[in-house]
């Protein structure tokens, strides 16, 4: 393999564009599968989503995939801008009059613009969730459930045993149980790495909770989860519109990008071209639409 061709030549840039782009398509599927848990109602849905998020953060295979995703995005963006800059330089004097709509699609001619808008979305989205959940230090509210229980109490005035309603806070633990834990009991219990509950005396981990990412998400799109530590987002309407419009941009990027990647890799023939193009268009619409349904649904059910 000669040194430069697989990095420098125009075709090589396209191979990398295609490989990273297709890997990102795969990432979208995985990400979507998890996010769809947000459509499940009630405590069950909340639990499913938080358990899924825990799995994504702790599984070693997923970790490798997530690093590949970061690398792919960075590579795809840098390569995309390089291609764009070269392509602009290749026509220093513009035409006075062009009719590009006669021979090509809007998306195909504006991949860099669409990509840049997606980049703006990715950065905002990571600030909205990824940064809050993973990077910013400080305590993160755990998955808790406030439950009303009957408490039998002795009433000294009458001498009778009476039933009194009482609220208790249960923590969902990684062993699957809901348990009462008194985190205020600083002498005996310590919270480490946000979620791990340690016995101070024994210096061992006794349990682990879940970060309540579900409440973070639903609060972001307008639900009032104050009781779980997440007041509702006043800009939820703006957020929902921004997320939906961004998914529309993604539709355009993938409408051209999906089949284009196969062409770049040389995987096009008379026999398979129509299939790849059709699958690409279905993918380009279905995946972003399902993504967009989530914030809209959360907003409407707040």
């Amino acid at each position: 393999m000669s040194k430069s061709v697989l990095l420098k030549s125009s075709l090589a840039k396209k191979y990398w564009m295609a490989l990273t782009g297709l890997f990102l398509c795969l990432f979208l599927v995985g990400h979507l599968a998890g996010n769809l848990q947000l459509l499940k109602a009630g405590e069950e849905g909340r639990r499913a989503f938080n358990e899924y998020a825990y799995f994504m953060a702790h599984n070693p295979v997923v970790k490798i995939l997530s690093y590949l995703t970061y690398i792919s995005i960075i590579f795809h963006v840098i390569d995309g801008f390089l291609l764009f800059a070269q392509n602009r330089k290749a026509r220093p004097v513009k035409y006075a009059h062009t009719r590009p709509q006669e021979n090509s699609s809007f998306a195909s001619r504006n991949m860099a613009l669409l990509g840049t808008l997606i980049l703006v979305f990715i950065v905002t989205h990571m600030q909205n969730f990824w940064y809050k959940a993973k990077i910013s230090n400080g305590p993160f509210p755990l998955h808790t459930l406030v439950k009303e229980i009957d408490n039998q109490e002795y009433d000294p005035a009458t001498g009778a045993i009476v039933n009194k309603k009482q609220d208790v806070k249960l923590y969902l633990l990684t062993n699957g149980q809901y348990q009462m834990i008194d985190l205020e009991d600083k002498d005996n219990i310590e919270l480490r790495h946000n979620t791990e509950i340690y016995s101070k005396k024994l210096d061992v981990k006794v349990a682990e909770g879940y970060k309540d990412l579900h409440s973070l998400t639903t609060a972001f799109f307008g639900h009032d989860n104050s009781k779980y530590g997440f007041p509702k987002n006043d800009l939820a309407t703006v957020a929902v519109i921004f997320y939906v419009v961004s998914m529309l941009v993604l539709i355009f990027h993938l409408w051209h990008g999906f089949s284009s990647a196969f062409q770049s890799l040389g995987l096009r023939s008379k026999k398979y071209a129509p299939i790849i193009i059709t699958v690409g268009k279905i993918f380009a619409v279905v995946v972003p639409v399902l993504f967009a349904v989530i914030p809209v649904y959360l907003y409407l059910t707040k």
């Binding site: 290749a90 006669e102 021979n103 090509s104 195909s108 991949m111 089949s259």
Partner: peptide
């Protein structure tokens, strides 16, 4: 020359 974006304008 620039890089191909597979727009397909050439073929048309």
């Amino acid at each position: 020359f620039g890089n191909c974006s597979n727009t397909g304008a050439c073929e048309v």
